[in-house]
Each structure stands twice: as C-alpha cells, then as structure tokens.
C-alpha cells in the first residue's frame, strides 16, 4: 500500500494531551490511539490505553481494552489514525520492537520523549514492511479548513 501524503496533521490540543499523559505516566511508557473517520486521515478522538506491560522500556495495549476500543471504532466507522507511545530514556525514534509490531500501514506512529535530554517534541513515523519513514508534524489550532477539504474530496 502506498502512502500518499507523508505528513501528520494534528490539532494542538491532541498533541498537548499526549504529552501530558506521557509525563504523568513517566517512568512507565505511556500508550494510546487517536481515532478518526475512515479515510479522512484526521485524528479526532484520543483514547489513552492501559499499558499492560507496566514497563519503562516496553508497552502493550491491554488486550481486553483494545478489543472494546476496536469494536467502538468499527461501530463509528473510524480507524486508528495515530498510535502513540512514549520513550522514557531513549530518543523518540522507533525501536526494533516498535517496527516488528507495527501492523497498521496507514497509521501515524507517534513517539513522545519524556526524558528532556532527548528533546520535548513529538515525532511521527510511517512504518511499512519494516521500513521507517519520518514525517513532518503540522499542528493546527483548528480543523475547520481540513474538514472543508475532507468534505470536498
């Protein structure tokens, strides 16, 4: 599957929510998703997930919560647009484990560093067949124009 637009467009409030959650969970790795309407590539509904691994170096979505969240998304015609987690003591770049588990070809994989020596900016990646491509993050204070574009398309 080809990725047309290599860029994550995301509301500033959602970025702030991910960063706040990551720092609150530190030193445990935080994780979650942001769902959005199928095919729109616009993240809207942030769902923090329980890290079943409760680890500083590993995360795994709680399988039972994941089932409920995935069923909800299906019922709402949504898909996971962003899949995010934090790195508590390494740079915000996908690890080999991250790449091995990455199964959503259309999702933006966002990593939040929670150790300030690795910066305080989130980074976003596409992961496809083991290949990692970093993409630009474009933050918006309003989705209005994006919605209008999505409606026309």
């Amino acid at each position: 599957m080809e990725v047309k637009k290599i860029m994550l467009t995301i509301h500033t409030k959602l970025v702030e929510a991910m960063i706040t959650q990551a720092h609150k969970d530190h030193p445990i790795e935080t994780c979650g998703i942001i769902a959005g309407p199928q095919g729109c590539n616009l993240p809207l509904r942030l769902i923090p997930m329980r890290n079943a691994a409760r680890s500083a170096v590993f995360f795994k979505f709680d399988p039972n919560q994941q089932l409920q969240v995935w069923r909800d998304m299906e019922a709402r015609d949504e898909e996971p647009i962003v899949i995010y987690h934090s790195h508590t003591d390494t740079q915000a770049y996908p690890s080999r484990t991250d790449v091995k588990f990455a199964a959503e070809l259309r999702a933006h994989y966002v990593i939040i560093p929670t150790n300030p020596i690795y910066g305080d900016e989130i980074r976003s990646f596409r992961i496809c067949d083991g290949m990692v491509t970093e993409e630009r993050v474009r933050m918006l204070d309003s989705y209005k124009s994006e919605w209008e574009l999505a409606m026309v398309a």
Partner: peptide
C-alpha cells in the same frame, strides 16, 4: 472469533519476553 494485531513496542528489543 476476533483477530487483532497486538499493539506493542518499546525502547529495548532485548527485553521482549512475550
């Protein structure tokens, strides 16, 4: 019967025990 990809990852590949 529902099949879902597990969503997981981490910072240190060596610590994957699952």
């Amino acid at each position: 019967l529902t099949i879902l990809p597990a969503v997981a990852g981490g910072a240190e590949p060596a610590l994957l025990h699952t």
